[in-house]
Amino acid sequence: MTVIRVAVVDDHPVFRLGMVALLSTLDGIEVVVEASSAAEALRAVTDEVDVVLMDIELGDGSGVEATKELVARLPDLLVLMVTMHEDDDSLVASVRAGARGYLVKGAGPEEVERAVRAVANGELILGAAVAQRAMGFMAASVSLPSAVFPSLTVREREILDLIAAGHDNATISRRLVLSPKTVRNHTSNILAKLGAADRSSAIVLARDAGLG
């Protein structure tokens, strides 16, 4: 059996130790590096590592930037982001940096194992919640014409469409599998870009443009 050599990079000792303990119980997976910072990861991760589990926010910098540097130096390295962040910007930034997987913290042991093995096998893997959002994002890019409010992003147009349909933030949050805070932030951006004084004004503009 080929052993998957793993590095775990996370600045939260309890989470890091827990992840190391979990991975150490799995057949064919060996943790060969632990790092608590971006600088430590850049020093410790070599071509002896197959898969890196990388946190996005580290105490001394960005896991995304660390990923970019590691992948540039070690093109065969496979990185799986393990993070609390569920927003689209973090997902896109991670993939652009060269990550091959994106798993939200809180995933169960079976999902973690499946993600590590899939990434090691060369697959692009997303956790269940992230995958559901990504599918919604892709569907939105097809269903909503870009000519409608071109200053908005695809996600913002999708949220505006749901606002215009009369849905509140809680419903939008559940439907798009986004956190309530993310929906509120997008809504604020939408109002600013449309020059709308409030949600009601945005609904009028959206419905006049055929949304909702």
Rank of each mutant, 00 (worst) to 15 (best):
S62N: 01
E65S: 10
K68H: 12
K68S: 14
K68D: 08
K68L: 12
E69G: 07
L70P: 04
V71T: 13
V71W: 10
V71Q: 08
A72W: 05
A72Q: 13
A72V: 05
R73H: 09
R73G: 12
L74T: 08
P75F: 08
D76S: 13
L77G: 04
L78P: 00
V79M: 02
V79R: 01
V79E: 00
V79A: 01
L80Y: 01
L80S: 02
V82M: 03
V82Y: 06
V82G: 00
V82R: 00
H85V: 07
D87Q: 13
D87E: 15
D87M: 10
D88C: 07
D88S: 11
D88G: 03
D88T: 13
D88A: 14
L91A: 10
L91M: 13
V92R: 13
V92H: 07
V92W: 09
A93D: 11
A93Y: 00
S94Y: 03
R96W: 04
R96F: 03
A97M: 02
A97N: 01
G98H: 07
G98K: 06
A99C: 14
R100G: 15
R100I: 10
G101T: 11
G101S: 11
G101H: 07
L103I: 13
L103D: 07
V104K: 03
K105M: 06
K105P: 06
G106R: 03
G106L: 06
G106W: 06
G106V: 07
A107I: 03
A107Q: 02
G108S: 07
E110F: 02
E111C: 01
E111S: 06
E111T: 07
V112N: 01
V112L: 13
E113S: 10
E113F: 01
R114C: 00
A115D: 02
A115S: 14
A115C: 05
A115F: 04
A115H: 02
R117K: 15
R117S: 09
V119L: 12
A120V: 09
N121S: 15
N121F: 09
G122K: 08
G122R: 09
G122L: 11
G122F: 11
E123G: 09
E123V: 14
E123C: 11
E123S: 14
E123D: 15
L124R: 15
L124Q: 13
L124W: 13
L124T: 15
L126N: 07
L126T: 10
G127V: 12
G127K: 11
A128M: 09
A128L: 11
A129K: 14
A129F: 06
A129L: 11
A129D: 12
A129H: 12
V130M: 12
A131W: 06
Q132F: 00
G136Q: 11
G136N: 14
G136F: 10
G136C: 02
F137I: 02
M138W: 02
M138D: 00
M138C: 02
M138I: 11
A139T: 04
A140D: 01
A140P: 00
S141R: 13
S141M: 09
S141C: 01
S143P: 00
P145H: 10
P145M: 10
S146Y: 05
S146G: 09
A147N: 08
V148H: 05
V148Q: 08
V148E: 07
F149H: 05
F149A: 04
F149K: 05
F149C: 05
F149I: 06
P150D: 12
P150E: 13
L152I: 09
